[in-house]
Design a binder for these strands. Sequence first.
DNA 1: GTTTGCTTCCATCAAATGATGGAAAACATA
DNA 2: TATGTTTTCCATCATTTGATGGAAGCAAAC
Lengths: 231, 231
Amino acid sequence: MATPLEKAHKDPESMKARILAVACRIFGEYGFHGTTTRMIAQEVGIDISTLHYHWGEKKDLYEAVILDINKDLGQKLIDVEKIIHGLPLGERMAIAIDTMTDYFFARPEISNIMLFRYIAKTRDNVDLRVPEFTADIARSMGLAKKSFNLADSMPDSRVNSAANLPNYTPPRAMLEVLAVMNAIHNFISGENFFRPMVNLEREEYIKAVKETLKFVLIPAFVQREGETRQS
Amino acid sequence: MATPLEKAHKDPESMKARILAVACRIFGEYGFHGTTTRMIAQEVGIDISTLHYHWGEKKDLYEAVILDINKDLGQKLIDVEKIIHGLPLGERMAIAIDTMTDYFFARPEISNIMLFRYIAKTRDNVDLRVPEFTADIARSMGLAKKSFNLADSMPDSRVNSAANLPNYTPPRAMLEVLAVMNAIHNFISGENFFRPMVNLEREEYIKAVKETLKFVLIPAFVQREGETRQS
DNA sequence: GTTTGCTTCCATCAAATGATGGAAAACATA
DNA sequence: TATGTTTTCCATCATTTGATGGAAGCAAAC
């Protein structure tokens, strides 16, 4: 309908976009309940009613933040997938870990909000995309077959059987991807807690985190791939 | 001083202990800001003033929860250390992961609260023990030398140099331990989110989590140990 | 039975918080 | 400039929330 209006709202300089950006940061720092609409409004430099005018109630703004993050993260994953496509597994993982770690360190709110959502009890169902991302990564990492469809060879099997769905991803593959992603998120979100523990400057910390992640996470997968190839 | 009074407060049936136990669970589910003193009081079945009578202000209760968790976790780590002592690294890690995973699944509030503290912005300094635990585990896993003291061989080196302190643990070893511990916490705290994603019953989920953790985390350490031994 | 000290609850407060109505301001357009 | 639309702010509400004072309950000591 109102094309100029919608366009204005997508302009990153628009009030609506500015509020969203600040909300993302504050929600990330303090969580949903730890954040007040007044905190966000004050940070933007506006009145609370302006905030409500653009985004409705607090929960709506929070959901908008989630959707925004999901969009951004989804795009980033596509970008990384393009870069690492075709390389051997060890290199794919190393590059992916380096790139995603830099990305999250640049936007720690993303890691924070993702982890908050995993941990805290919540009733909102905004989030159909995390499972989707996880399955995509699993496929990209060769942990699940691409568009594997058992039904082709077993036409009589039950339609409802999850394993027969086109893009079915086995639980173990999903959990392995989650283990990798969460390991990254933890070091970003936990920086304020962990960095004093190890007594490193920010740059050193980032470097050490990358090395640690690559050291801990890669060998298992590379080793298994080798074994599978041999047999 | 008042011995009978203090004794009463340590009795797990005492009101003070009951409040603490419930507080631990609720704080774990909703985080500090997401929890109200009324929620806790209602769950215990008492009035808010009774809660305040025993524990003072909300923050004091929260700090008591942290201390309680740290105590329990510290004891558990000592127990595990005893069991795995002397075994080869791969087995040590496998048993430690199995045992700690069971422990955290039985008391998910612990994982929740640990992660909440890592993520959320906080100013409290209740927590001198997490670094200590981490260093202990690092030593137990052979990632840091036990009571290594350079000053013995270099009497003139600067006293303040961290590397010369008796129980100094290098950053990389600390981060490696954190990576392992956090990987466990994530799957426990994230159960509500991850389990529907992988569509498993609780028991299956726990089993799959343990397998995934052992698969992802152990090979890197075992492999490095082998390389170090060879050289 | 009375006193004493600890525990619990009811009533209530003050501050914080999410939210809204309506006036003023800013902006666009004819 | 006049007119209509959009945006912003001020004043204000109703709830929620952390917190307290004081009365009532209760048990052991005297």
